[in-house]
């Protein structure tokens, strides 16, 4: 089994990659390859051109810009897990990455690849939705910034043109008395989540001042639980408050598939949201 023939390009700059995309109509962008390579091997995709981003200088790495993490799109998932700044300022990220595939796939898989592939059950899009991250996309006319809320257009379809590449992700970290929780249920370790929940909480003067709850696996895109977030703000953190807020997850529109019904996803969403909120409350005084 091997991919159908294609022409391989390995640009060394983002400009060169964008020019190649503009020049070649039927092309695919290769990042870590942990999703595209299986699709090529099985000939689900048969592009004429493959544009490999692995040789591009300057689009991998993690930079701490005050309270924002600037993460290059080609940063490997492994490097996100090993980075000291992320561990300190956004510890939910390395924790959640334990759920992404297996350590062998995380050694190649990238944050940008996951965000562009945009599997509805993937952990990184779920996290970026919780943080309201901003994505930088480069095209022939220069770079543009896309708020994560506007990134998913439809099922596995990000807001990126055929001649654009994702170059960076900005993650605004929370400061003060903050906590984080990430929980997920999948049938086997390393499988895509049936439901995943990322929760961030900030507390001021004994009351919740800010909350973000993001659900993966329930909808075609990561789903923010706006109603539950609003219900939490102004309340004191506690098990009853969390249970009441999590109950709101039961009313979401949830996908069904051959294995998992919509009702089961709704139940899981409520249970896992409650667990994620309790986990977040248990590590308040940390960072998120």
């Amino acid at each position: 089994m091997k991919p159908a023939p294609f022409t391989y390009h390995d640009p060394t700059t983002a400009d060169e990659a964008v020019a190649l995309l503009a020049q070649h109509e039927d092309s695919k962008v290769l990042a870590g390859g942990q999703s595209l390579m299986p699709m090529l091997n099985m000939r689900f995709v048969v592009p004429d051109h493959v544009i490999d981003l692995n040789g591009i200088e300057g689009i991998a790495g993690i930079r701490d810009a005050r309270d924002t993490l600037e993460i290059g799109a080609m940063t490997r998932q492994r490097d996100l897990m090993r980075d000291g700044t992320i561990a300190e300022k956004a510890p939910i990220i390395p924790g959640a990455l334990n759920w992404v595939g297996h350590f062998q796939t995380r050694n190649r898989g990238t944050i940008g690849g996951s965000l562009c592939h945009l599997d509805p059950a993937a952990e990184l899009p779920c996290l970026m939705a919780a943080y309201d991250a901003t994505l930088t996309v480069q095209g022939p006319d220069g770079a543009r910034a896309v708020p994560f809320a506007e990134w998913p257009l439809a099922y596995m379809m990000p807001s990126i043109g055929p001649d654009e590449i994702l170059t960076a992700v900005s993650v605004p970290c929370w400061s003060g008395n903050v906590g984080h929780g990430f929980v997920e249920y999948a049938r086997r370790h390393g499988d895509f989540a049936i439901v995943a929940v990322a929760a961030l909480l900030a507390v001021e003067g004994g009351k919740i001042s800010r909350a973000a709850i993001s659900l993966g696996g329930v909808d075609v895109r990561p789903l923010r639980l706006d109603a539950a977030e609003a219900a939490l703000v102004g309340e004191a953190p506690g098990a009853d408050t969390f249970r009441a807020a999590a109950e709101l997850a039961r009313g979401i529109d949830a996908m069904s598939d051959a294995y998992v019904s919509s009702e089961y996803r709704q139940r899981l969403a409520a249970t896992l949201t409650e667990r994620a909120l309790n986990a977040a409350a248990n590590n308040l005084n940390g960072s998120a």
């Binding site: 091997n41 297996h102 062998q104």
Partner: peptide
């Protein structure tokens, strides 16, 4: 499996374990 699931093809690339079916 040749699509990254079974792990049989794992090799070390610069010392790190990777799927050799998911790399050119």
């Amino acid at each position: 499996c040749e699509h990254g699931v079974c792990g049989a093809c794992t090799v070390l690339l610069d010392g790190e374990a990777v799927r050799s079916c998911l790399m050119l």
